[in-house]
Design a binder for these strands. Structure first.
Lengths: 235, 235
DNA sequence: AAATGTGATCTAGATCACATTT
DNA sequence: AAATGTGATCTAGATCACATTT
């Protein structure tokens, strides 16, 4: 992890409007600018670790991050993938507990770090921020409940299809048809998203490839028939 | 579902202090008393249904309720069991969506129903209520993430042990040692908590019984060695 | 009659041991 | 050297078909 050299003012951040910090007023933004640091992480660098005390919140400006729990024998269970615009690490500031999960960069990632005290102060003074966070956590709860039900009940093949669609969305591959050749996540990470063994994930991808839903070039995956994958997920 | 005959004033409800509504002032309580209805549900009666529009919130005063999603081919995935003191059904009022899960009584259950508009008004006027709810949702998110990781990674035997401990806690069977003969949930419901087939759950219980962790009498289960079960869960 | 339980059988997915590719 | 991929084998748990209990 290192400081990014350049300074990006909150007020001129075009991601802000699409994030939970969209509600900050000019004055709030200035306060954030004074206290934040802009950090850069390399792939697989740890942003925060399960069990540690939350030091602040992280506002993602570029890249992608896996949010995960470490389960049996160190196997990761990836709960979600955060991308630009996401706010991370605030949940256990609110519960006043240690981090219940870890955040690790999937690719080169930049984010702004806000110290805990500043975040607490912003929350205290901004009802819009509080209600935005509230809505966000509620939505994330429902998403997690969906994932849990899928893992408990759906076969690997369908969960693999769902994960591919999630990744397409995360990496912004335009429409559901005809995405560029760009899903570039390790097979192990993908297996930990699906909740299966790496070998099983690889076989599942091979099957989807044989059936023409996807194409692979090395580790890169191109989705050829997103609508078809969606059909598998819905079944 | 039927009205309970008797009227219980919020101010005199001794559960209130231990619930999210503990923060309501006398005036709030009076407003609630004017608009709430006290309802009684029989076992397996539906309190609200996945996909329906939230009509209000439910404050549980007696009994227990399963919160579940209906997955593949109608198989239930039980996300949690709510007991007296719990507040249900508010999450999708906040997200302004349809209910993302269903609530079904596990036994004879009583609760107070507050219409949506009243709940929204209480939230709007009471910062303590808002922050209590916020903390609650954050905690529930973390609990669900734990459950998800267990389902993805732990064998049925360990998840069965975890479910038994959860049920002991829910049904208030004093300490971890020597609980009375009182876990009385259908094998099917228990299987849907563990996330397995009913036959598999039954075999799993049989094994735990053979090993002396539990004792059964008909469908009732008595935990003989809670500490031992905890050991299984931790492994 | 519905829930619980059992036995027999099947299979999806895990695991292990390597080969191949990046 | 680490990630990807493959083949062989194993096994936990699902499924099916009933018997037994409440």
């Amino acid at each position: 992890m290192s400081e990014t050299g350049t300074f990006h003012a909150c007020l001129r951040c075009d991601l802000r409007k699409r994030s939970l910090f969209g509600v900050l007023c000019d004055n709030d933004c200035n306060r954030v600018d004074l206290q934040k640091s802009s950090l850069r992480y390399k792939p697989s660098e740890v942003i925060y670790d399960e069990g540690s005390r939350p030091k602040g919140v992280y506002c993602v400006s570029r890249g992608s991050i896996k949010i995960l729990k470490t389960g049996t024998e160190g196997k990761e269970q990836i709960l979600k993938v955060a991308k630009a615009g996401a706010l991370l690490g605030y949940r256990n500031i609110i519960t006043n507990e240690q981090h219940a999960n870890s955040a690790i960069a999937l690719e080169e990632t930049e984010l702004c770090f806000l110290p805990r005290a500043l975040f607490v102060e912003l929350m205290a003074n901004n009802e819009d921020l509080r209600s935005g966070l509230m809505r966000e956590v509620c939505q994330e709860y429902d998403e997690l409940a969906d994932t849990l039900t899928d893992i408990a009940q759906k076969p690997v093949r369908e969960r693999t299809a769902a994960t591919l669609l999630m990744l397409m969305d995360t990496y912004g591959l335009d429409s559901i048809e005809n995405s560029p050749l760009d899903i570039n996540v390790s097979r192990e990470d993908m297996a930990n998203m699906v909740g299966t063994a790496t070998e099983t994930l690889i076989r599942s991808l091979k099957e989807l490839k044989k059936e023409g839903f996807i194409e692979t070039k090395g580790r890169k995956i191109k989705v050829l028939n997103g609508r078809g994958l969606l059909g598998l997920v819905r079944s």
